[in-house]
Structures are given as C-alpha cells and as structure tokens.
Design a binder for these strands. Structure first.
Lengths: 208, 208
DNA sequence: CCTACCGATCGGTAGG
DNA sequence: CCTACCGATCGGTAGG
C-alpha cells in the first residue's frame, strides 16, 4: 500500500464503526461516509471489507502479544520472580494495550468471529496461546503455594474475560486514568488467586 | 400469539444463529432455513426480526433480575447477612441463568446493542440497575471492613464482565459442571474483594 | 477518487 | 405456511 496514512484513516473509521455497529452491521458505504468519499472509492485503498477487519484484528493481536512479551521479559529480569509479580505485569500490559486504543481492542475482542474461516482459526490459536501465558503463571503459583488451589484454566478464563470486559465499560475520558485502572485491576486479579493464608516462610514458600 | 411452541422454536433457532453470527449477520431466511420453512413464512409468527431479538433479550433480562431477587431474598433470610455471602449468592444466581441457557445469555450480553433506540435504552437502564446490586454489596463490604478498600464501581464492573465472559468460553458439555463453575467463580470473586487481613483475629481464622 | 453499474441478498408484504 | 414479488441496500467492478 502506498497511501499508508489514508489506509490508517480508513482503519480508524472502520474500528469506530465496527465497534459501534459490529462488522456485519457496518457497510462499506458507512466507512466511506465517515471519510467523506464515495463507497466505491474505498476500493482504491483496500481490497475488501474483510481485509480491513483483518488488518485491525491482526495488528491488535500482535500488540497484545508484544506487550505481554515485554512485560514478562522487562518487568521480570530474574526468571524466578514470583508468579504474583508476573501475573500483575501481564495484567498491566494487557490493560495498557486496551486503554491505548480501546476501539481496536474492542473490535479485536468482539469482531474476530466475523473473520473468514482460515484467519479466524489463526486468531483463535493465537488467543489460546495468549491465554496460555495466564494459565501457566497461575499453575506455577498454585504449585508454589503462593496462589490458592484454583483451577488454572478456569482462573485464566476468568481473568482474561474480565480484562477484555474493560472495552465494554471503560471511558478514556472518565474519572479513572489508565494507570489507576491497571492498578485496581491488578489488585483484584492478584487477590482473586492469592492464597488467603499468609505464606509460611520456610515450609514450602518460594525463593529467599 | 397463538402458536406459542412454534414461536419458541423460532426464538431457539434465532438465539443460536444470533449467537454464532450476530444479529446483523443473521438473515430472516437463515432463521427460516433452520426451521425448514420459507423466509416469508416466518412472518406468520413474528412481526419483525427486531421483535425476535427483543423477545430473547427481554426474557433473559427478566431471568437475571428474577434470579438475583431470589438469591438475595432466599439465600439471605437475615437482612444483615454478610456482604460476602450475599455477593456469592448473586454470583451463583447469575451463573445459573447463564449455564441454563447459554445461547440466550450470550445474545443478551452481546446483541442488546442491536436493539432499536428505545428498547436499547430500557435494557441499558435495567443492566445498570442490575450492576448496581453488585456495587451496593461491594460498597457495604468495604464499609464493614470485611472487603478490601476497592472502588465499588470498578469491582462491580470487573465482577460482572467476568461473569458475562462465561458465555464466551464455557461449554455445557465440557468437564466442568455448572455447579462446579459456580463454586469456582464464587471463590475467585470473593477472594478478589475480601480483605487479606483476617477481620477478627481468632474468631474466623482459617485452617492451621 | 469519481460516476455508473452489476448481481445478490436484504427485510418485509400481498394474497392466498 | 406457500408463491410471487417489492424497493432498498449490499459488497464489489469497470473504466476513467
């Protein structure tokens, strides 16, 4: 694509409309109207409506993955840092991506099902892998005894759906700043899985 | 409506399709095909596609409200029962409605935005009131000191979106039975808001 | 980026 | 519940 900035404007407009009305509920002419051009003119910049959805979803999927990588690598120089701090880092990273572009995040969360079969399958697998990071950390914490004996798959689903639910209620112009939201959610998530009993330093607890 | 059972079959088929493809992504002919009748024949039983969506959403909204009423009244004969048990009762009631009819629950959660303006507004208000029950209980628990000092509005949104997220991953034919799901989620939700410090040293301490 | 246009499908109605 | 049909809109193409 030559006109990268125009392409981006199209995806901005499409993200907003897909979020409001859904992919199926948004016509190519709706997107064009938002940009003050004719419906057919959109095809000078994109090959199909599906193509626009794919760009938005794929871009956002990569952002979530990259943010999670950075959170686990950067915020955790020591590979044996506690599951609690790793989980909190993952939560903050996820919320950072959501609050930074809540429209694309909302489309990613709700509209990936409108993708054609093969692309939908790809995103499905990447979502599974992403959720797997949460599952692994929870399992680690349970094994170490710092977390309560929760089912890691259930806890991971609980956590990730709560995080994705942010797109349904969070208002960027509201009283709650992104950083405050991240801290509040990190606290809720950590408490949800942390063992109620204070760790017994010496019996089975973690590193010194 | 005379043919109540046929009407119900239509809403069953529509719920399944609306859940899979969304309201906009489902045509009247799709619904008719699932019932082996012609598209136009559907109008012998319903007045519009919107009407079918409204029936599903309104019916499910009422189920959630009724279940919450029963949970707070029945499971809590004493008006001063702890916020923890009231919150757990609300969680179990909500999950009961979701697992009992996950297709209608999914349509309620995701497709109410496709409602026409006035009905959409009504459901929006009822959702707010429903979320308010969670908010009030959390605020009570925070005030009483049994809950951690969380923001009641944030915690209520966190909890309710996590509960609604169940429609996105729960499989009724999976290994996890509805009752086990409800218990696991009630534990996660309670721990998320419960104060980490033992509230009354000596009186309600856990196991050794 | 435009005008002009395509076949397909949409929700819904008429009249049995 | 059917056949026959309606105007509107859909995603997309042709040809500038």
């Amino acid at each position: 694509m030559v006109e990268t900035s125009r392409r981006r404007e199209i995806e901005d407009a499409a993200s907003s409309l897909f979020r409001e009305r859904g992919y199926s509920g948004t016509s190519v002419r709706d997107i064009a109207r938002a940009l003050d051009i004719q419906g057919a003119s959109l095809y000078a910049h994109v090959t199909s409506k599906q193509d626009v959805l794919w760009s938005i979803v794929e871009f956002t999927a990569t952002r979530f993955e990259t943010a999670a990588d950075a959170a686990l690598a950067g915020a955790d120089p020591m590979p044996v840092a506690g599951p609690g701090s790793r989980l909190a880092a993952l939560v903050r990273a996820h919320i950072g991506v959501v609050t930074d572009d809540i429209e694309r995040a909302s489309v990613f969360v709700h509209e990936w099902r409108s993708l054609a079969a093969d692309r939908r399958a790809e995103i499905g697998h990447r979502r599974d892998a992403y959720e797997g990071r949460f599952r692994t950390i929870v399992a680690d914490g349970v094994e170490a005894g710092t977390f309560a004996p929760v089912d890691p798959a259930v806890a991971a689903a609980f956590i990730l759906t709560a995080l994705n639910g942010i797109v349904a209620w969070y208002r960027p112009d509201g009283r709650l700043k992104p950083a405050a939201l991240a801290e509040a959610y990190a606290d809720l998530v950590l408490r949800a899985v942390l063992s109620l009993e204070p760790e017994d330093p010496g019996s089975e607890a973690g590193p010194p």
